[in-house]
């Protein structure tokens, strides 16, 4: 794994290398070279299996973090390639030509986060939310509790408890800590 990272360092500017486990490493690259790195890993380093494409919303930094997780079946290890894109007019180069199933991930990201992938097949069709007309629901500025209360007729008198304190008061009522 170390050897692979050192080898990749020579041709790509990797930053923030994090060895999560023995067989899982995350690296971060610039937006422009992310897909180059993915393609390189697929074609030359044996990462033939695409695991997932996911997104994290860093609203404080104004950024989305995309993670392409690749798997090397012969070496039995994973490589996560992270890249940051701007939150405003979020857009990323489509990777559906590398693996066909990425088109589905991109369709979901378009719907849930509003990240555009120009050229990806059927990216504009609704995926799970049919006829959604609010801001994309997985963006953190979307207040899902308020939306639910406004839309779905909440039943009066429904209460919730914090599981930790509730169980503590139930199981150990005498414990005064």
């Amino acid at each position: 794994m170390e050897q692979l990272i050192n080898k990749l360092q020579k041709s790509f500017k990797l930053s923030d290398v994090k060895h999560q486990r023995e067989n899982l490493t995350f690296v971060t690259v610039k937006k422009d070279s992310a897909l180059d790195l993915v393609t390189h890993c697929r074609d030359y380093e044996g990462f033939s299996h695409f695991v997932l494409l996911s997104c994290v919303d860093w609203i404080e930094d104004g950024k989305f973090q995309l993670t392409y997780l690749l798997n090397n079946p012969s070496g039995k290890f994973d490589l996560g390639i992270r890249t940051f894109i701007s939150r405003d007019n979020a857009s990323m180069t489509s990777a559906h030509l590398l693996w066909r199933q990425i088109a589905t991930y991109q369709r979901e990201l378009k719907e849930m986060y509003g990240i555009d992938f120009p050229g990806s097949p059927r990216v504009d069709e609704s995926f799970i939310l049919e006829g959604w007309d609010e801001i994309p629901p997985m963006r953190r500025e979307f207040d899902t509790k308020k939306y639910s209360e406004d839309t779905y007729f909440p039943r009066e008198g429904r209460g919730s408890n914090d599981p930790a304190t509730y169980m503590k008061s139930k199981l150990y009522p005498d414990d005064e800590k």
């Binding site: 799970i128 779905y152 007729f153 039943r155």
Partner: peptide, 19 residues
Amino acid sequence: TINGGMYYDSYNTINRLDQ
């Protein structure tokens, strides 16, 4: 189906079926 259960604050699941 009664009051939303653990998904009471979800953006995508209904809270009360009887509506």
